[in-house]
């Protein structure tokens, strides 16, 4: 029993991960209780998706799994699959923002601070969510951290490792929210249309397949940091790399397919414009 507990404890304690995961879940459930009292809480599936996503990020960053992710290539690729694809996908699918906002404590931030801060964040958000930049960033970050020399440094340095993983989580949530936002217009303002999103989802799939295939089919070791730092267990370096390449290739590309299926589902349900919600689907959400 204590042995299992040991594996659930962080390999390297990181305050930022704890604050993000526990703080996020706390805000969400606080908001959920308040919304339920007002009869505008979402049903079961959205809270479940949000919870699984947040627990997933916590599991790959703040349990003993992080040890495996540091000392084996394919387990590292699975960690990034969760951080950049699976967990952010679920979080975006759950549309958590109104619930999180309801959970916020009523602190008064002076307008002199909040106004410029919000303006800065809004500007940054608009740049990052640009329909050309967002997919480039999504694929570019995967490629960037897999440049062998960059990958080497990131695995050697504690703070670079954290920067790498945070870039995955933040970019993952931004990208999948851009893709899975259930409405295409909000308050009369146009958001990215479903058609453009389908194109983007297909476009990001191709370079991911190319990279994964390149790694999986390479006949020499591309990432020597795992030999330099030692492996979690004595697994042949090329086998490790081949499995890692497959993880980068197949499930990552499958996430695009899942995203396309979700969009088609939205489309068939007649969603998109928030001024004309389809019957049956949005009744439990509120505004």
């Amino acid at each position: 029993m204590t042995e299992y507990l040991y594996y659930l404890l962080p390999w390297e304690f990181g305050l930022s991960w704890l604050v993000f995961c526990v703080g996020g879940l706390w805000l969400y459930y606080r908001g959920l209780v308040r919304r339920r009292a007002r009869g505008i809480a979402p049903g079961v599936w959205r809270p479940l998706a949000f919870t699984v996503g947040m627990v997933g990020i916590y599991a790959v960053s703040q349990t003993h799994y992080d040890y495996l992710a540091q000392y084996m290539f394919f387990t590292h690729r699975i960690q990034h699959l969760v951080m950049h694809h699976a967990a952010p996908f679920l979080i975006a699918l759950s549309v958590p923002w109104p619930v999180l906002a309801s959970g916020l404590p009523e602190w008064r931030v002076p307008a002199g601070v909040s106004k410029p801060a919000m303006a800065l964040l809004r500007g940054l958000y608009r740049v990052l969510q640009n329909p050309v930049l967002a997919p480039v960033l999504f694929v570019g970050l995967i490629y960037f951290w897999l440049i062998p020399s960059v990958h080497f440094d990131a695995m050697l340095s504690r703070w670079l490792y954290d920067v790498m993983n945070w870039s995955m989580v933040i970019d993952g949530i931004l990208f999948w929210w851009l893709m899975l936002d259930p409405v295409t217009t909000k308050g009369g303002l146009a958001r990215l249309g479903f058609g453009a999103r389908l194109v983007i989802l297909w476009l990001v799939m191709v370079p991911q397949i190319a990279l994964g295939a390149y790694i999986a089919l390479s006949d020499r070791v591309l990432f020597d940091v795992y030999a330099v730092c030692g492996r979690a267990w004595p697994l042949a370096p090329l086998t490790d790399q081949q499995i890692g390449g497959l993880v980068t290739w197949i499930p990552a590309a499958m996430m695009s397919v899942l995203g396309i299926l979700v969009l088609i589902g939205y489309w068939l349900a007649g969603r998109g414009d928030d001024r004309a919600p389809a019957a049956g689907l949005t009744t439990t959400e509120g505004a």
Partner: peptide, 23 residues
Amino acid sequence: YRVTYGYGEPDASGNYSVSHSSA
């Protein structure tokens, strides 16, 4: 120093391989 090590399964005579950092 962000290095690790691990032990393989022992063979019949009790010898086992050890993975470790090469740096």
